[in-house]
């Protein structure tokens, strides 16, 4: 089975966000594989181990994403591809990224594409469904279970807490929701092996795309931090009185109940 994983390098969830000269400050920040993409990588490896084939992890970004691609290889993916847009794309959006990925994937004869359902930085969750549409294949988002038999896939999709059991067919794109699996940590032998696995780097030119083809349709004009919350009121006294006071405050002062 020919399996592709869409991966994004993101800020570590531990990081505090600061802004300098209107942009998110990346100095000294730790970066990780987007947590939802980790589920995607794990699932791809499991599907390959059960059905045979090959897992290729692909990322659109800068050469800094090589580190996360190596981690994916160390987890057990077979190949990695970095589509380096550093020289060509100044400010892309989801239109940009999905167009690039779809151009890359269109002649790859994919059976299965797995991505995270959302990236924890941009948080738009668009790229998966967009890529599927551009490739004209079915997709199912926020999945918590994937079973494949022949060319039939049975998928459990999380729909705001409810679960839908959906039957569909390969080739297919799915996006991972938490609960899909338990992503493995790279083992030491895995890390050693990953050094020898292929990590190709290509640019837009290699995909016969130029900047105009992928020019963003939207633009960020301002980034700000949320208003700082003032420290609240910790109640005191007998517990029963505290509870009475709290209910009073919520009803009369905050007016939320």
């Amino acid at each position: 089975m020919n399996i592709y994983v869409l991966m994004k390098r993101t800020f570590d969830t531990e990081e505090k966000i600061t802004i300098s000269s209107g942009k998110i400050n990346e100095d000294g920040a730790e970066f990780i594989i987007n947590p939802y993409d980790e589920y995607a990588i794990e699932e791809a490896i499991q599907v390959r181990d059960a059905h045979g084939g090959e897992v290729t992890v692909v990322s659109v970004g800068t050469e800094e994403a090589e580190k996360q691609l190596r981690t994916a290889l160390a987890m057990g993916a077979d190949k990695a591809v970095l589509i380096n847009t550093e020289d060509d794309v100044e400010e892309g959006d989801q239109f940009t990224t999905s167009k690039i990925l779809a151009e890359f994937l269109k002649d790859k004869e994919v059976d299965l594409i797995i991505g995270g359902n959302v990236a924890i930085d941009g948080g738009s969750g668009q790229v998966g469904p967009r890529v599927a549409e551009l490739l004209a294949i079915p997709y199912i988002t926020t999945i918590t279970k994937l079973d494949i038999e022949g060319t039939t896939a049975t998928v459990v999709r999380d729909v705001e807490g409810d679960s839908e059991v959906i039957e569909t067919s390969l080739p297919l794109l799915v996006t991972a929701q938490q609960g899909l699996n338990e992503p493995r940590y790279p083992s030491l032998p895995g890390i050693m092996k990953a050094k020898k696995k292929p990590l190709d780097e290509i640019e837009l030119d290699d995909l016969d795309l130029d900047e105009d083809d992928v020019e963003a349709k939207t633009k960020t004009i301002e980034i700000s931090l949320p208003p700082k919350k003032e420290a609240g009121k910790v109640l005191e006294g007998e517990l029963e009185d505290q509870v009475k006071e709290l209910v009073g405050l919520l009803h009369n002062e905050a007016k939320v109940v």
């Binding site: 998110i24 960020t220 931090l225 949320p226």
Partner: peptide
Amino acid sequence: IYSGKAFE
């Protein structure tokens, strides 16, 4: 963005 750690 960043799950509400910032806004754009």
